[in-house]
Write a protein that binds this DNA or RNA. Sequence first.
RNA 1: UGGGGUGUCGUCAAGCGGUAAGACACAGGCCUUUGGAGCCUGCAUUCGGAGGUUCGAAUCCUCCCGCCCCAG
Length: 357
Amino acid sequence: MRTMETVFIAMSGGFDSSFAAYLLKKQGYHVVGITFRLLPPSLRDDNNPRACCSIETVHRAQRAAAHLSIPHYVIDLREEFESAVIQPFIDGYQSGDTPNPCVLCNRFIKFSAFAERAFSIGADKIATGHYALVEERSGTHYLLKGTDRSKDQSYFLYPIKPDVLKKIIFPVGHYRKEELKKLAGDLKWDIRSLPESQDICFIPENNYRAFLAPHIQPKPGPIYLTDGTLLGKHGGLHLYTIGQRRGINIPYKEPLYIVDVRPEENSLVVGGKNELGRRIIHAREINILYHTQETVTAKIRYRQKEVPCTYTVHGDSMTVTFAEPISSPAAGQSIVLYHGDIVIGGGIITRNAASKG
RNA sequence: UGGGGUGUCGUCAAGCGGUAAGACACAGGCCUUUGGAGCCUGCAUUCGGAGGUUCGAAUCCUCCCGCCCCAG
Protein backbone atom coordinates (compact mmCIF):
# COMPACT_ATOMS: atom_id res chain seq x y z
CA MET A 1 0.00 0.00 0.00
CA ARG A 2 1.52 3.25 -1.07
CA THR A 3 1.97 6.21 1.15
CA MET A 4 -1.08 8.30 1.60
CA GLU A 5 -0.86 11.49 -0.41
CA THR A 6 -1.29 14.77 1.39
CA VAL A 7 -3.70 17.22 -0.20
CA PHE A 8 -4.13 20.81 0.91
CA ILE A 9 -7.56 22.02 0.00
CA ALA A 10 -8.49 25.66 -0.18
CA MET A 11 -11.67 26.00 1.85
CA SER A 12 -13.78 29.09 1.46
CA GLY A 13 -16.44 27.96 3.87
CA GLY A 14 -18.84 27.52 0.99
CA PHE A 15 -20.57 24.44 -0.28
CA ASP A 16 -18.32 23.44 -3.15
CA SER A 17 -14.98 23.53 -1.37
CA SER A 18 -16.46 21.88 1.72
CA PHE A 19 -17.82 19.08 -0.37
CA ALA A 20 -14.55 18.83 -2.23
CA ALA A 21 -12.82 18.29 1.09
CA TYR A 22 -15.32 15.61 1.93
CA LEU A 23 -14.71 13.84 -1.38
CA LEU A 24 -10.95 13.91 -0.92
CA LYS A 25 -11.23 12.47 2.52
CA LYS A 26 -13.51 9.75 1.22
CA GLN A 27 -11.04 8.95 -1.52
CA GLY A 28 -8.42 8.25 1.10
CA TYR A 29 -6.21 11.27 0.90
CA HIS A 30 -4.60 12.88 3.88
CA VAL A 31 -6.56 16.10 3.72
CA VAL A 32 -5.59 19.42 5.21
CA GLY A 33 -8.03 22.32 5.05
CA ILE A 34 -6.71 25.77 4.37
CA THR A 35 -8.52 29.07 4.46
CA PHE A 36 -6.88 32.25 3.25
CA ARG A 37 -6.73 35.58 4.87
CA LEU A 38 -6.82 37.90 1.91
CA LEU A 39 -8.35 41.19 2.87
CA PRO A 40 -6.70 44.11 4.59
CA PRO A 41 -8.63 45.31 7.65
CA SER A 42 -10.13 48.19 5.72
CA LEU A 43 -11.93 45.77 3.41
CA ARG A 44 -12.90 43.18 5.95
CA ASP A 45 -16.63 42.81 6.11
CA ASP A 46 -17.67 40.52 8.87
CA ASN A 47 -21.28 41.11 8.06
CA ASN A 48 -21.01 39.69 4.60
CA PRO A 49 -21.20 35.89 4.78
CA ARG A 50 -19.84 35.65 1.27
CA ALA A 51 -16.83 37.84 1.82
CA CYS A 52 -13.76 35.72 1.51
CA CYS A 53 -12.35 36.08 4.97
CA SER A 54 -14.90 37.40 7.31
CA ILE A 55 -14.85 35.87 10.77
CA GLU A 56 -17.94 33.94 9.84
CA THR A 57 -16.33 32.53 6.71
CA VAL A 58 -13.32 31.24 8.61
CA HIS A 59 -15.55 29.73 11.26
CA ARG A 60 -17.61 27.99 8.66
CA ALA A 61 -14.52 26.47 7.10
CA GLN A 62 -13.30 25.42 10.53
CA ARG A 63 -16.58 23.76 11.32
CA ALA A 64 -16.55 21.93 8.01
CA ALA A 65 -13.04 20.70 8.72
CA ALA A 66 -14.13 19.61 12.17
CA HIS A 67 -16.99 17.63 10.69
CA LEU A 68 -14.51 15.84 8.50
CA SER A 69 -11.95 15.45 11.23
CA ILE A 70 -9.26 17.05 9.17
CA PRO A 71 -6.81 19.67 10.34
CA HIS A 72 -7.54 23.24 9.33
CA TYR A 73 -5.24 26.20 9.08
CA VAL A 74 -5.52 29.81 8.10
CA ILE A 75 -2.74 31.22 6.01
CA ASP A 76 -2.11 34.88 5.51
CA LEU A 77 -1.85 35.98 1.90
CA ARG A 78 -2.97 39.55 2.42
CA GLU A 79 0.12 41.19 1.00
CA GLU A 80 0.10 39.04 -2.08
CA PHE A 81 -3.62 39.57 -2.60
CA GLU A 82 -3.31 43.30 -2.19
CA SER A 83 -0.47 43.67 -4.67
CA ALA A 84 -1.53 41.01 -7.18
CA VAL A 85 -5.30 41.33 -7.22
CA ILE A 86 -6.78 44.36 -5.49
CA GLN A 87 -4.35 47.02 -6.64
CA PRO A 88 -4.28 45.81 -10.27
CA PHE A 89 -8.06 45.74 -10.16
CA ILE A 90 -8.16 49.39 -9.18
CA ASP A 91 -5.36 50.37 -11.55
CA GLY A 92 -7.04 48.52 -14.38
CA TYR A 93 -10.28 50.39 -14.06
CA GLN A 94 -8.41 53.63 -13.57
CA SER A 95 -6.70 53.16 -16.90
CA GLY A 96 -9.87 52.26 -18.76
CA ASP A 97 -9.44 48.50 -18.73
CA THR A 98 -11.88 45.93 -17.40
CA PRO A 99 -9.88 43.64 -15.16
CA ASN A 100 -10.89 40.15 -14.12
CA PRO A 101 -9.89 39.71 -10.49
CA CYS A 102 -10.80 36.02 -10.40
CA VAL A 103 -8.31 35.28 -13.12
CA LEU A 104 -5.64 37.27 -11.29
CA CYS A 105 -6.42 35.53 -8.04
CA ASN A 106 -6.10 32.11 -9.61
CA ARG A 107 -2.91 33.10 -11.34
CA PHE A 108 -1.13 34.78 -8.46
CA ILE A 109 -2.80 33.59 -5.31
CA LYS A 110 -4.47 30.20 -5.42
CA PHE A 111 -2.21 28.50 -7.92
CA SER A 112 0.97 30.42 -7.14
CA ALA A 113 1.35 31.82 -3.66
CA PHE A 114 -0.84 29.24 -2.02
CA ALA A 115 0.54 26.40 -4.11
CA GLU A 116 4.14 27.28 -3.29
CA ARG A 117 3.35 27.60 0.36
CA ALA A 118 1.52 24.29 0.38
CA PHE A 119 4.21 22.36 -1.43
CA SER A 120 6.90 23.86 0.78
CA ILE A 121 5.24 22.59 3.92
CA GLY A 122 4.41 19.09 2.89
CA ALA A 123 1.58 19.02 0.41
CA ASP A 124 1.79 16.55 -2.44
CA LYS A 125 -1.22 18.04 -4.14
CA ILE A 126 -3.50 21.01 -3.75
CA ALA A 127 -7.22 21.12 -4.38
CA THR A 128 -10.00 23.66 -4.75
CA GLY A 129 -13.75 23.51 -5.23
CA HIS A 130 -13.63 24.58 -8.86
CA TYR A 131 -15.77 22.89 -11.47
CA ALA A 132 -12.98 21.77 -13.77
CA LEU A 133 -10.80 18.71 -14.22
CA VAL A 134 -7.16 17.79 -14.47
CA GLU A 135 -6.55 14.60 -16.33
CA GLU A 136 -3.38 12.74 -17.08
CA ARG A 137 -3.18 11.10 -20.45
CA SER A 138 0.01 9.29 -21.29
CA GLY A 139 2.14 11.38 -19.02
CA THR A 140 0.70 14.76 -19.87
CA HIS A 141 -1.70 16.66 -17.68
CA TYR A 142 -4.63 18.41 -19.26
CA LEU A 143 -6.91 21.05 -17.87
CA LEU A 144 -10.46 20.16 -18.85
CA LYS A 145 -13.91 21.58 -18.54
CA GLY A 146 -15.92 20.38 -15.60
CA THR A 147 -18.42 17.60 -16.24
CA ASP A 148 -21.30 19.93 -15.44
CA ARG A 149 -21.04 22.28 -18.38
CA SER A 150 -23.43 24.76 -16.86
CA LYS A 151 -21.04 25.20 -13.93
CA ASP A 152 -17.74 24.81 -15.75
CA GLN A 153 -15.13 27.19 -14.38
CA SER A 154 -12.18 26.27 -16.54
CA TYR A 155 -12.34 29.76 -18.04
CA PHE A 156 -10.93 31.24 -14.85
CA LEU A 157 -8.20 28.62 -14.57
CA TYR A 158 -6.24 29.04 -17.79
CA PRO A 159 -3.32 30.86 -16.09
CA ILE A 160 -2.29 27.79 -14.11
CA LYS A 161 1.28 26.84 -14.93
CA PRO A 162 1.95 23.32 -16.25
CA ASP A 163 4.16 22.32 -13.34
CA VAL A 164 1.43 23.29 -10.88
CA LEU A 165 -1.35 21.80 -12.98
CA LYS A 166 -0.04 18.28 -12.52
CA LYS A 167 -0.37 18.61 -8.77
CA ILE A 168 -3.96 19.84 -8.71
CA ILE A 169 -7.15 17.98 -7.91
CA PHE A 170 -10.60 19.41 -8.57
CA PRO A 171 -12.76 16.94 -6.67
CA VAL A 172 -16.14 18.35 -7.62
CA GLY A 173 -15.28 18.62 -11.31
CA HIS A 174 -16.59 15.15 -12.04
CA TYR A 175 -20.04 15.87 -10.74
CA ARG A 176 -23.08 17.72 -11.77
CA LYS A 177 -24.25 20.26 -9.26
CA GLU A 178 -27.50 18.46 -8.59
CA GLU A 179 -25.65 15.21 -7.99
CA LEU A 180 -23.54 16.93 -5.39
CA LYS A 181 -26.58 18.38 -3.70
CA LYS A 182 -28.17 14.97 -3.65
CA LEU A 183 -25.09 13.28 -2.24
CA ALA A 184 -24.78 16.04 0.30
CA GLY A 185 -28.31 15.38 1.45
CA ASP A 186 -27.25 11.96 2.69
CA LEU A 187 -24.54 13.33 4.94
CA LYS A 188 -24.79 13.88 8.63
CA TRP A 189 -23.89 17.52 8.49
CA ASP A 190 -26.01 20.16 6.92
CA ILE A 191 -23.56 21.03 4.20
CA ARG A 192 -26.25 22.15 1.84
CA SER A 193 -26.96 25.18 3.93
CA LEU A 194 -23.48 26.55 3.27
CA PRO A 195 -23.45 29.59 1.02
CA GLU A 196 -22.52 29.46 -2.61
CA SER A 197 -19.56 31.64 -3.30
CA GLN A 198 -20.02 34.06 -6.10
CA ASP A 199 -19.34 37.65 -6.98
CA ILE A 200 -15.98 39.19 -6.35
CA CYS A 201 -14.97 38.12 -2.89
CA PHE A 202 -13.55 41.45 -1.81
CA ILE A 203 -16.43 43.53 -3.10
CA PRO A 204 -19.57 43.83 -1.00
CA GLU A 205 -22.89 43.29 -2.71
CA ASN A 206 -21.24 42.91 -6.04
CA ASN A 207 -21.07 46.67 -6.35
CA TYR A 208 -17.67 47.27 -7.85
CA ARG A 209 -18.42 50.87 -8.70
CA ALA A 210 -19.02 51.63 -5.04
CA PHE A 211 -15.83 49.77 -4.18
CA LEU A 212 -13.83 51.87 -6.62
CA ALA A 213 -15.32 55.17 -5.53
CA PRO A 214 -12.86 55.90 -2.71
CA HIS A 215 -9.90 54.90 -4.89
CA ILE A 216 -10.59 56.65 -8.16
CA GLN A 217 -11.15 60.33 -8.68
CA PRO A 218 -14.12 60.66 -11.05
CA LYS A 219 -13.07 62.29 -14.28
CA PRO A 220 -16.06 63.22 -16.45
CA GLY A 221 -15.66 63.36 -20.20
CA PRO A 222 -17.56 63.28 -23.48
CA ILE A 223 -19.59 60.50 -25.03
CA TYR A 224 -19.59 60.36 -28.82
CA LEU A 225 -21.62 58.41 -31.29
CA THR A 226 -19.56 56.33 -33.71
CA ASP A 227 -20.02 59.05 -36.35
CA GLY A 228 -18.48 61.63 -34.04
CA THR A 229 -21.63 63.32 -32.81
CA LEU A 230 -21.38 64.50 -29.23
CA LEU A 231 -24.24 62.83 -27.41
CA GLY A 232 -23.58 63.25 -23.73
CA LYS A 233 -21.07 63.01 -20.95
CA HIS A 234 -19.83 60.26 -18.70
CA GLY A 235 -18.88 60.31 -15.05
CA GLY A 236 -15.50 58.63 -15.38
CA LEU A 237 -14.22 55.82 -17.59
CA HIS A 238 -13.98 53.40 -14.68
CA LEU A 239 -17.77 53.25 -14.59
CA TYR A 240 -18.02 51.76 -18.06
CA THR A 241 -16.84 48.80 -20.06
CA ILE A 242 -17.05 47.65 -23.65
CA GLY A 243 -20.48 46.30 -24.50
CA GLN A 244 -22.17 47.99 -21.57
CA ARG A 245 -25.70 49.24 -22.13
CA ARG A 246 -27.07 50.33 -18.82
CA GLY A 247 -25.91 53.52 -17.19
CA ILE A 248 -25.06 55.41 -20.35
CA ASN A 249 -28.07 57.60 -19.71
CA ILE A 250 -28.59 58.74 -23.27
CA PRO A 251 -32.08 58.51 -24.76
CA TYR A 252 -31.80 57.49 -28.37
CA LYS A 253 -33.79 55.84 -31.11
CA GLU A 254 -32.20 52.51 -30.23
CA PRO A 255 -30.30 51.13 -27.24
CA LEU A 256 -26.74 52.37 -27.12
CA TYR A 257 -23.75 50.31 -26.08
CA ILE A 258 -20.19 51.24 -25.23
CA VAL A 259 -18.30 50.51 -28.42
CA ASP A 260 -14.95 51.98 -27.46
CA VAL A 261 -13.19 53.35 -24.41
CA ARG A 262 -10.51 55.93 -25.15
CA PRO A 263 -8.36 56.75 -22.15
CA GLU A 264 -6.07 58.98 -24.25
CA GLU A 265 -8.87 61.49 -24.65
CA ASN A 266 -10.97 60.39 -21.70
CA SER A 267 -13.88 59.73 -24.00
CA LEU A 268 -16.41 57.02 -24.67
CA VAL A 269 -17.80 55.97 -28.03
CA VAL A 270 -21.28 54.50 -28.19
CA GLY A 271 -23.16 52.77 -30.97
CA GLY A 272 -25.78 50.19 -31.79
CA LYS A 273 -25.58 46.54 -30.87
CA ASN A 274 -24.42 45.68 -34.36
CA GLU A 275 -21.27 47.70 -33.84
CA LEU A 276 -19.89 45.55 -31.04
CA GLY A 277 -18.54 42.65 -33.07
CA ARG A 278 -14.81 42.02 -33.48
CA ARG A 279 -13.06 39.27 -35.36
CA ILE A 280 -9.46 39.80 -34.34
CA ILE A 281 -8.32 39.94 -30.76
CA HIS A 282 -4.81 40.33 -29.40
CA ALA A 283 -3.84 39.00 -26.02
CA ARG A 284 -0.84 39.42 -23.74
CA GLU A 285 0.58 37.48 -20.82
CA ILE A 286 -0.59 34.28 -22.37
CA ASN A 287 -0.30 30.86 -20.81
CA ILE A 288 -0.38 27.88 -23.11
CA LEU A 289 -1.01 24.44 -21.68
CA TYR A 290 -1.66 22.37 -24.76
CA HIS A 291 -0.87 22.42 -28.45
CA THR A 292 -2.94 21.28 -31.36
CA GLN A 293 -3.21 21.79 -35.08
CA GLU A 294 -6.87 21.03 -35.10
CA THR A 295 -9.82 23.36 -35.06
CA VAL A 296 -10.05 25.34 -31.89
CA THR A 297 -12.62 27.55 -30.22
CA ALA A 298 -12.40 30.43 -27.80
CA LYS A 299 -14.47 32.56 -25.55
CA ILE A 300 -13.90 35.94 -24.00
CA ARG A 301 -16.13 35.70 -20.99
CA TYR A 302 -17.35 33.15 -18.50
CA ARG A 303 -20.71 31.69 -19.52
CA GLN A 304 -20.45 32.10 -23.22
CA LYS A 305 -20.40 29.40 -25.81
CA GLU A 306 -17.09 29.11 -27.55
CA VAL A 307 -16.65 30.35 -31.09
CA PRO A 308 -14.45 28.71 -33.74
CA CYS A 309 -11.21 30.57 -34.36
CA THR A 310 -7.56 30.33 -35.24
CA TYR A 311 -4.64 31.67 -33.26
CA THR A 312 -1.00 32.49 -33.66
CA VAL A 313 1.44 32.85 -30.81
CA HIS A 314 4.29 35.35 -30.75
CA GLY A 315 6.33 35.12 -27.57
CA ASP A 316 4.04 35.82 -24.67
CA SER A 317 1.28 37.32 -26.78
CA MET A 318 -1.07 35.97 -29.39
CA THR A 319 -3.56 36.93 -32.05
CA VAL A 320 -6.90 35.18 -32.26
CA THR A 321 -9.06 35.40 -35.37
CA PHE A 322 -12.67 34.38 -35.10
CA ALA A 323 -14.75 32.86 -37.85
CA GLU A 324 -17.65 35.05 -36.84
CA PRO A 325 -17.44 38.37 -35.03
CA ILE A 326 -17.46 38.00 -31.27
CA SER A 327 -19.27 40.61 -29.24
CA SER A 328 -17.66 43.19 -26.98
CA PRO A 329 -14.13 42.10 -26.19
CA ALA A 330 -12.87 44.37 -23.44
CA ALA A 331 -9.23 45.11 -22.68
CA GLY A 332 -8.26 43.50 -19.40
CA GLN A 333 -10.66 40.60 -19.80
CA SER A 334 -9.36 37.17 -20.69
CA ILE A 335 -9.68 35.15 -23.84
CA VAL A 336 -9.48 31.39 -23.38
CA LEU A 337 -8.88 28.81 -26.10
CA TYR A 338 -10.30 25.31 -26.15
CA HIS A 339 -9.91 22.16 -28.14
CA GLY A 340 -13.10 20.37 -27.31
CA ASP A 341 -13.01 19.96 -23.55
CA ILE A 342 -9.35 20.74 -23.28
CA VAL A 343 -8.15 24.16 -22.25
CA ILE A 344 -5.43 25.22 -24.65
CA GLY A 345 -4.58 28.38 -22.76
CA GLY A 346 -5.45 32.02 -22.74
CA GLY A 347 -4.34 35.55 -22.19
CA ILE A 348 -5.43 39.06 -21.40
CA ILE A 349 -7.10 41.06 -24.14
CA THR A 350 -5.14 44.15 -25.08
CA ARG A 351 -6.34 47.65 -25.76
CA ASN A 352 -6.49 49.17 -29.21
CA ALA A 353 -5.76 45.83 -30.66
CA ALA A 354 -9.22 44.44 -30.96
CA SER A 355 -9.84 44.98 -34.64
CA LYS A 356 -13.07 45.52 -36.41
CA GLY A 357 -14.41 42.72 -38.45
C1' U B 1 -44.62 94.16 -33.44
C1' G B 2 -47.20 91.71 -37.92
C1' G B 3 -47.68 86.40 -40.55
C1' G B 4 -47.13 81.10 -39.85
C1' G B 5 -46.11 76.84 -36.71
C1' U B 6 -46.05 74.23 -32.19
C1' G B 7 -46.70 72.74 -26.96
C1' U B 8 -48.70 64.60 -24.76
C1' C B 9 -43.86 60.50 -19.40
C1' G B 10 -36.67 62.45 -18.20
C1' U B 11 -36.06 62.23 -24.11
C1' C B 12 -38.27 61.08 -28.96
C1' A B 13 -43.20 60.13 -30.20
C1' A B 14 -48.56 57.81 -31.39
C1' G B 15 -53.30 59.77 -30.82
C1' C B 16 -57.57 63.70 -34.99
C1' G B 17 -64.63 63.39 -29.92
C1' G B 18 -65.19 57.81 -26.79
C1' U B 19 -62.31 57.41 -22.09
C1' A B 20 -53.36 58.32 -22.85
C1' A B 21 -49.47 53.25 -28.03
C1' G B 22 -44.45 52.47 -28.51
C1' A B 23 -39.12 53.37 -28.34
C1' C B 24 -35.01 55.18 -25.57
C1' A B 25 -33.71 56.49 -20.61
C1' C B 26 -34.43 55.19 -15.57
C1' A B 27 -35.64 51.76 -11.25
C1' G B 28 -36.15 46.91 -9.20
C1' G B 29 -35.64 41.61 -9.87
C1' C B 30 -33.68 37.07 -12.28
C1' C B 31 -29.26 34.95 -14.19
C1' U B 32 -23.88 34.54 -12.47
C1' U B 33 -17.40 32.69 -8.54
C1' U B 34 -15.08 38.84 -13.32
C1' G B 35 -17.05 43.15 -16.28
C1' G B 36 -20.71 43.31 -19.90
C1' A B 37 -24.86 41.12 -22.27
C1' G B 38 -29.67 38.84 -21.94
C1' C B 39 -34.52 38.01 -19.61
C1' C B 40 -38.78 39.75 -16.34
C1' U B 41 -41.39 43.65 -13.99
C1' G B 42 -42.39 48.76 -12.98
C1' C B 43 -42.70 53.66 -15.04
C1' A B 44 -48.19 60.05 -17.58
C1' U B 45 -55.77 59.17 -13.39
C1' U B 46 -53.24 62.61 -17.32
C1' C B 47 -52.07 65.53 -22.24
C1' G B 48 -48.72 74.14 -21.24
C1' G B 49 -52.78 77.03 -18.19
C1' A B 50 -57.90 78.78 -17.46
C1' G B 51 -62.71 78.71 -19.19
C1' G B 52 -66.49 76.77 -22.67
C1' U B 53 -69.28 73.20 -26.13
C1' U B 54 -70.66 67.95 -25.43
C1' C B 55 -73.51 62.11 -22.31
C1' G B 56 -68.25 62.20 -23.11
C1' A B 57 -62.32 66.23 -25.04
C1' A B 58 -55.38 65.28 -25.34
C1' U B 59 -58.58 65.62 -29.51
C1' C B 60 -63.74 71.21 -31.07
C1' C B 61 -64.12 76.78 -29.49
C1' U B 62 -62.15 81.21 -26.61
C1' C B 63 -58.50 83.66 -23.94
C1' C B 64 -53.69 83.45 -21.62
C1' C B 65 -48.54 81.48 -21.30
C1' G B 66 -44.02 79.18 -23.56
C1' C B 67 -41.02 77.82 -27.58
C1' C B 68 -39.76 77.80 -33.12
C1' C B 69 -39.59 79.90 -38.05
C1' C B 70 -40.49 84.09 -41.68
C1' A B 71 -41.10 89.44 -42.03
C1' G B 72 -39.54 94.34 -40.07
